[in-house]
Structure formats: C-alpha cells, structure tokens
Design a protein around this nucleic acid. Sequence first.
DNA 1: ATCCGCCTCCGCCGCGCGGGGGAGAACCCG
DNA 2: CGGGTTCTCCCCCGCGCGGCGGAGGCGGAT
Lengths: 220, 220
Amino acid sequence: MSGAPVRVVLADDERMVRTALRVILDAEEGIEVVGEATTGAEAVSVVRELRPDVVLMDVRMPEIDGIRATEQILATLEDPPRIVVVTTFENDAYVYDALHAGAAGFLLKRAAAEELVQAVRLVACGDSLLYPAAVRTLAAEHAARQPAMAPAWVARLTDREADVLRLMAAGLTNAEIAGRLSVGPATAKTHVAAVLAKTGARDRTQAVIAAYESGFITPG
Amino acid sequence: MSGAPVRVVLADDERMVRTALRVILDAEEGIEVVGEATTGAEAVSVVRELRPDVVLMDVRMPEIDGIRATEQILATLEDPPRIVVVTTFENDAYVYDALHAGAAGFLLKRAAAEELVQAVRLVACGDSLLYPAAVRTLAAEHAARQPAMAPAWVARLTDREADVLRLMAAGLTNAEIAGRLSVGPATAKTHVAAVLAKTGARDRTQAVIAAYESGFITPG
DNA sequence: ATCCGCCTCCGCCGCGCGGGGGAGAACCCG
DNA sequence: CGGGTTCTCCCCCGCGCGGCGGAGGCGGAT
C-alpha cells in the first residue's frame, strides 16, 4: 500500500479539468501527477514514455478519443498502467466501450475530490473488490454484442454500403434510402444489391437480420 | 469515516458461511455484526427491526431469494441499508438482477477476508466511486434487454403469429414459413399480414426490426 | 345458444423488390 | 500513364410481397 508514490498521468483536453485534478491529487500523500496530455494520441505517447501507475483518461478528446487511446495503451504496452476513464455523464454510452477497452474503472467529472483520490488509490492496488471480474464479464457481454464477432463481410462493406445497410435496418425502402442519401433510386438499388451480395442475404430482410446478428447494429 | 461502528446483518442459509463472515468482520475495528438471517423473508424482517448500515445478502436462500429480499428491503424501508449481494460464481446471472434490484455491490464467496472488510467499509461510506450510478444503468440496460420493455403489441400477438414472426426474423419467405408450419401459403400470408398490422410495420423488414428492438428476439 | 377470437384458406391486383446487364466519372496507387 | 476501386446511374424482366375482400370451422366466454 505504501512505499513509492502512485504515479499518475492526466489526459484531458480541457485545461481547467487537468488543473483541478492535479490540484486535488498533488495535495495527497503518496500520489504524484507526473504528466499530462491533451489529446488521445498524446496520451498514448506520454504514457509510453513516463510509464505511470494510473491514467485518468477523458473520453472526449481530439484526434483519438479516450477509448481508443485506452485500447492502444493496453494493447501495445507491457505491464500497462491502470486506466480510469473520466466521463461527464453517467449514462454516457462510452462507459460500456471503456469497460470493454479494459479500463479499470470510470469516474464522473462531478465526483467529489475524496472519491477521486480513493479511486486512484484503489486502482493502483490492482483489482478493486467492488469491481471484480463479474463487472468485466458484464461489460464484455455488452461489448460482445457490438464490436467483436463481426463476420468478414462487415469489413468488406464500403462506406456507402454501410450507410445503406444502416438505413435498410431502419426499415427504409430503396426510394427512401435514395432520398435520405440524396442520390438516385437506381444508385440506392445498386448499393442495396451490393450489400445483399456481401452479406450473403437473399433479400433486405435477411440483410437486416445479418446486421443485427453480427452486431453491425444493435437493438436499443 | 470513524465514530459509530458499522452495523452489519448477515443473510445466508449456510451456517458455516455466516460463521466465517462473522469471525472475519467481528475481528475488525469499527465493524459490528448485529444480526443474522437464514432466509430471504427473515432477512427482510431482521433488517426492518435492526436497521443495520450494511447487509451481506446471499443470493440463494429458501422462501425468498436474496434478489427479491433486496428489492423488498429497498422498496419498503426508508433510509435503507446498503446491500452487498454475495454470490458463489462471478458469472452468476443473478449478478445482473442484483444490480438491477439496487444492490450496492456484489462479492464473491471466495473473496479474501481483506476484500470483505474493505467492501463493508466502502459501501458503508455511501456510493463508492468505482460503483456509480452508471453501473446501475448498465445493469438496468441489461435487464431491459430481455424481460421488460416489451411493447404492448407483443402481448397481442397470437401464438401462431408469434411463430410466424420468429420465422420472419429468421429470414424466411412466406412460402417457406408455410412449409415450416405445414400450412398453406395463403395462411402464412394471413398471419404475416396480422403481424404487420399489430407491429405497425409497413413490410416484413420493419416487423423484424421491431422484433429485435422490442427484445422479442435477441441477436446471438 | 350466441358471439367472438383464432386458425385455416381462397381469389385479385399493384408495386416494390431483386437479378441481370452495361456505363461513365472520380479517385488512388503503382 | 494504366488499373483498380468506388460511386453514380440507366435499361428490362420476373416475382414475391403486401393490401383488399371474403369464407368456413372451431373453441371458449357470456
């Protein structure tokens, strides 16, 4: 628990937030803010260089968001730091992605200073008890619905075809898709045909089913 | 943090477990086990009487399980205690229900003594930071996926129509549905038309979308 | 005994859909 | 510069689909 101080890196694009976090944490015994970053990309490089114990990572940041930065850090570094994702709203959809990306915890920006300090200390000690593998399972299950398990065909879809599939999955007809995309009906038909071919679907209904089953789109 | 000791009630049908928990917690400064219960129903009444700060609630118990007991306690008592649900397996499906029921945390039975103590202290202090309302949202969303959120039209479907909708959502044509159900094509068409009417869908694709979005069928 | 909901089936009709083929323009990359 | 990919658009054709109205049997509820 004691001994070397906990080395922390802050990643947030807002200076005020970084300052606030630094003031709070620097006042604590055994916690030391060793670096800051203002973008996701910078966070990755700073962490790679400074090798902190804990990273407080904002979700919304320029260039690379906090989620992808988290993924990159955990994927590329050996013995990676514990990453706490900071969000503004508790119902932020990013929370799920954060958990899936391997974040050790998440924190609301309106959290009290004590909570912040407590969070840093807890994650620095490894897996917190209030945060056992079960939560990760929960998050993993949630995540398993979306990003993973994407059959090969998803990657083969062009941007336009992906747009079309999303609209198909919204229940639009070819003509409506054309209108929504501001293209001719024939074009929409072409894209739909391409989607059907790539998904191996016989008709638009099967394509929509494939979209759901693959996690390309999610209910709710 | 200090001052009056944390008053704890244990609810578990196995004597050994209760004893183990009591031994661990009674050895701690500032924690006092004030009562025990062996069933869910007993847990509710004991808690109502003793008004503890924290309840350690086993999931599997006679009469009323820990989940329902948790719900009842939280629903009927003002200023209810913080309830930690105790499970044997981390992938226990009850975990989700526990969170949804409003449990303040969950704990594995194989957790170390220190974790147990830490858990009690943390939840006694109120909402732990590693466990904000967002987790509850996560759990609520999980729970909302399957059992609840079924729009009114789901209940209005006849058995046959439900069968047809499932086959529609499997990507079958009217003729294939007829074959699968061993009825005439005209009959299948009639049921499909009924499904479209009740779901408010314009075509079979929208009906399948509605089936997914309502949780009538689930991806995976 | 009567009504109502469910399941079963029949015709007709219009249209959106999917399959087939071809074609031009923009772009990137080797 | 040529080749590949993507996006755009056109033709024709067949057919499954969805909308319409009608009908008979069967069971439960009143």
